[in-house]
Structures are given as structure tokens and as C-alpha cells.
Design a protein around this nucleic acid. Structure first.
Lengths: 192, 192
DNA sequence: CTCACTTATTAATCTACATTAACTATTGCC
DNA sequence: GGCAATAGTTAATGTAGATTAATAAGTGAG
């Protein structure tokens, strides 16, 4: 199994000895996921945090009328889970679906807790991972409160250019909090 | 200076020796802030993370028309800063204002980094702090995408009952992403 | 290659929430 | 205690974005 990418991801923030790398990768559960399959289901328990080795995922919930709403995306080299369900050990509030055929490495919560004890530098790694996630999410909240749809869409395209070609527009619309029809109108407003 | 509350806050997640507690509190800068004063100003640098010992704060940005939008609140025993500006060392994207006369303890970024090195258990404390902040923010994103104003307001009142009496409704409206006028209409809909 | 299915676009109509404005509590300071 | 400033409410009118529906353009399995 090719653990090069995930080790590079971790070593971006902390540096591990060979033995620690081996211990860490021994805890990972590799899985191949076909497009449209779920790695996490709403209302079920959420036992893993997932590193995306290859592919794309989206997390979604259902709104008050039962329609799907996209909470987040994850492409290669990102981590994804229902963070609330995972750490609070509560039923998941969202489902996570593969958009492409994908490969992930799963880390069980119990193993993550062992990892924190055995190699405490992983506390630092996850501190930075959670910190960056919080920053990203707070910036998104701020954009939702302060920007119009057109501005938010432009900001999204600028921030995540690699998403546009791999993620259907209907999911991007849902992530931005609008209908695909309205996103079409907004996109049509832009000449060039 | 009364460091009892902040030490209890920290010891909720890690346990410190007396000497470590003393080192930690030696890094804190106590400040009294009068209502309406700012502890952080949009576009200025953001050098501190702030623990609210006593009082209430709100963080806000300006929208595309220049109107204030509330990003978050913080009451006693909460931490608040422009998390992006603080960790990325970028100009603040929001201002933070005292709603009541307040007392805070400020921790400089440079001192926090020393603290991570000297007492690495603080990596764990901040991992949990960032993790809980991320969870809170993702739940909020999910609510904004899936719930109507009435449902979001009810959820807010249920989750933060202590806020209602201390925070003017116009700020709560702005936090929920609606005008005070519309929040009034929504509240009037509820009998009892 | 093709037929079925999914995704994207366009347009007419509808609605949740914004805007403006006027009025009514509250709050706080001399 | 009074009065200016701030906060909250109500109502008429306006608009960003939703809904519905129909069409067009991709995409994929056999």
C-alpha cells in the first residue's frame, strides 16, 4: 500500500521517526470506494476519520423538506468525517459519498486516541488540522453572511479551482446554499 | 488577579502541575474593557487570543454594502479572536467589541508558541479547543443550509439560553443572517 | 454507436426575507 | 426623574433567489 501521500501530509506539520511512521500506518485501514457509494451514513455511528488518498467525496445532510444540502467536499490529500459524530460519539448528522472511484485510509477513533498517547506529536498534528478546518469554516460563515451569491461563487472558484472540473455544479450550488437553476443564472451573467 | 476560572477551563482537558500553571498565567495579560470598546479592529494585525473572564463580546465584519454582520459571540469562560488573522498572521477580517464591561486575559501568539514547546500538553488543550470550535462552526453551517429562520432561532435559544438576556436581539438577528425586523416577525409568530 | 439517464440551462411564476418608514418600548446618563 | 439615545415592533412595498416546467447537453453502460 502506498502511504507516501499521507505520510507527507502528516510530516508537513510534525516530523516522525521511521518507527513512528510504521506505527501510524499500521493503524490505517485502506479501502477502495466506488463512485456513488457511502463511507458514512446519516444517523449511523461514525467510527472513522478518513484521509482521501485518491478521489473526491462530498458530505451532505437533508434540509427541512428532505432535500440534500452539501456540507463539505474532500479531494485527494484532504481529511473528511462527520466531525461532531466522530469526536462526540453521536449518530452522524451527515452522509459522505464518493463522487469518483476513490481510495481512502480510515483511522478508527479508538486507534487515534491510542496514537495521541503513544506519539503525542500527533496532538500537534491534529491541533493544526482542526485549527485549519475551523479557520476554513469560519471564513465560509463570514462569506455566507457578507457576500451575494455571485461573489461567493467567484470566491469558491478562485479558492478551489481544482474542484470545478471534478464536482458537478449542482453540488457546488448546494454547497453555496442556492439552487442549481439560480447558479446557472449567476454564471450566465458573467461574460467571457 | 483571579486566574481560577481560566485554570479550571484549561484543567477541564489537561492536568497541569503548579509550576506549569504559574508559567501559563505568567504569560496572560489581564485587561479591563469597557462596553463598546474594541479589543480587535478589522484590517489591523491580530496578535492575541482572548479568554473572557467576565463579560460578553461579539465579533463582526462588514458586508458588501458596509453593514455589520455578527460572526460570533463570546461570554464568560469562552475564547475569542480572529482565528484566521491570529494563526496566519494576516490582517484581521473582523472586529471584536465588548457588549458589556468585561475582563479578559490575552495570550500573545509568540507566547502561545513558546507554551506549546515548554508544556506540550497545551497542544492537546488547543487541539480540543480548535476541535470543539470546528464542530460548533460546522453545525452552524449545516443549520444555515438546512433550516428556516424560525427553526434556527429556536435552536439558538435552546443552545445558548444564557445569551438571550445579555445580547441585543439585533445582534442575534445579524448572527442568524436576517434583519432585526424579520426576526421580530418570526418571534411574533410564536404564541405563548 | 446508441439509448437511457444524469446534469445543466432557460424562462415564468412565486415566496421568504429585505427595505423603508413610522411608531413604541427600553436604557442610560445629567 | 426626565429626556435623549438605543432597541424592538409593525406594516407596506420591493427583490434575491426558490419553484416548476420544459429543453438541451453530457455521460455511461451494454
Amino acid at each position: 500500500m502506498d502511504y507516501g501521500n499521507i505520510l507527507k501530509n502528516v510530516n508537513r506539520h510534525i516530523s516522525l521517526k521511521k518507527s513512528e511512521e510504521n506505527y501510524f500506518t499500521s493503524l490505517l485501514i485502506p479501502r477502495e470506494i466506488e463512485a456513488k457509494n457511502l463511507i458514512l451514513v446519516e444517523n449511523k455511528s461514525c467510527k472513522h476519520i478518513n484521509y482521501v488518498h485518491e478521489g473526491v467525496f462530498r458530505a451532505y445532510s437533508h434540509d427541512h423538506e428532505g432535500k440534500e444540502r452539501t456540507i463539505m467536499f474532500a479531494v485527494n490529500d484532504w481529511w473528511i468525517t462527520d466531525i461532531h459524530g466522530f469526536f462526540m460519539e453521536k449518530p452522524a448528522l451527515m452522509s459522505v459519498e464518493a463522487i469518483e472511484n476513490s481510495v481512502i485510509f480510515q483511522l478508527r477513533k479508538t486507534d487515534l486516541e491510542k496514537l495521541f498517547v503513544e506519539v503525542s506529536r500527533f496532538e500537534r498534528f491534529f491541533r493544526i488540522l482542526m485549527q485549519n478546518s475551523y479557520i476554513r469554516e469560519q471564513l465560509r460563515t463570514r462569506q455566507n453572511l457578507t457576500m451575494q451569491t455571485e461573489e461567493r461563487y467567484n470566491a469558491f472558484v478562485t479558492k478551489y479551482p481544482q474542484f470545478i472540473s471534478r464536482i458537478p455544479l449542482k453540488y457546488i450550488a448546494s454547497y453555496l446554499g442556492v439552487t442549481p437553476q439560480f447558479l446557472s443564472v449567476v454564471r450566465a451573467r458573467k461574460p467571457l
